[in-house]
Simulated scan of single mutants.
Amino acid sequence: MRIVAIAAVADNGVIGSGEDMLWHIPADFRRFKQVTTGNTLIFGRKTHEQIGRTLPDRRIIVVTRDEDWADDSVEVAHSITEALDLAAQTPEKVCYVGGGSQIYEAAWPFLTELDITHVHQDPEGAATFPLISQREWTEISREVHEGYDFAQYRPTPEDS
């Protein structure tokens, strides 16, 4: 199973500021829907609640430490490893990790790919994406647009 972090990340590493969307890029929303439809998505509880709705045609697993939290529209896990174990039990070939910050950090050792929208802004915000180090990750493609780029990364081979 491929495990892919998918995120829109500002030039300063910020991905969020609580309740507010920091940018509105329709092409990013369309691309997110296109690549995640038919696959599994893992979100943290806060990210799931911020989205505010169920995303159709995707299996959603929400990670929360709250043992009493429940939502009938999603599956619940209490750690990233539990969420990945659930994801591995289905025929979907790709599991997307969709945030937030703590979920990206927890999933980092398990990721096989990064699918990043680099947003050319520097907003303020407490939620950040882990640093994409060239020692760890090699960019394999980039699609340049005005104000943002779509980029994919794979782990850098150990002998590089």
Rank of each mutant, 00 (worst) to 15 (best):
residue 1 M to V: 07
residue 3 I to D: 03
residue 4 V to W: 02
residue 6 I to F: 09
residue 10 A to V: 15
residue 10 A to G: 10
residue 12 N to A: 11
residue 13 G to F: 06
residue 15 I to G: 05
residue 18 G to D: 12
residue 25 I to D: 01
residue 29 F to K: 08
residue 29 F to Y: 13
residue 31 R to T: 04
residue 37 T to W: 15
residue 38 G to F: 12
residue 38 G to S: 08
residue 38 G to D: 14
residue 40 T to D: 02
residue 41 L to P: 06
residue 41 L to Y: 09
residue 44 G to F: 00
residue 45 R to H: 04
residue 48 H to C: 04
residue 48 H to L: 04
residue 49 E to R: 00
residue 49 E to P: 01
residue 53 R to G: 08
residue 54 T to D: 06
residue 58 R to K: 02
residue 61 I to A: 02
residue 61 I to Y: 12
residue 68 D to C: 05
residue 71 D to R: 00
residue 72 D to P: 14
residue 74 V to W: 15
residue 75 E to A: 12
residue 76 V to I: 04
residue 76 V to E: 13
residue 80 I to F: 14
residue 82 E to G: 03
residue 87 A to L: 10
residue 87 A to K: 01
residue 91 P to E: 03
residue 96 Y to D: 11
residue 96 Y to H: 08
residue 99 G to K: 10
residue 103 I to D: 02
residue 104 Y to T: 09
residue 104 Y to N: 14
residue 106 A to H: 00
residue 107 A to Q: 04
residue 110 F to I: 10
residue 112 T to P: 10
residue 113 E to H: 07
residue 114 L to G: 11
residue 115 D to N: 14
residue 121 Q to L: 08
residue 122 D to T: 15
residue 124 E to K: 07
residue 125 G to I: 07
residue 125 G to D: 07
residue 127 A to N: 10
residue 129 F to R: 05
residue 130 P to T: 10
residue 132 I to G: 03
residue 134 Q to W: 05
residue 141 S to V: 07
residue 142 R to V: 14
residue 146 E to Y: 11
residue 147 G to T: 03
residue 149 D to H: 01
residue 150 F to I: 04
residue 150 F to K: 07
residue 151 A to F: 01
residue 151 A to E: 07
residue 152 Q to E: 15
residue 152 Q to D: 05
residue 154 R to G: 02
residue 155 P to D: 12
residue 158 E to G: 02
residue 158 E to C: 04
residue 158 E to Y: 10
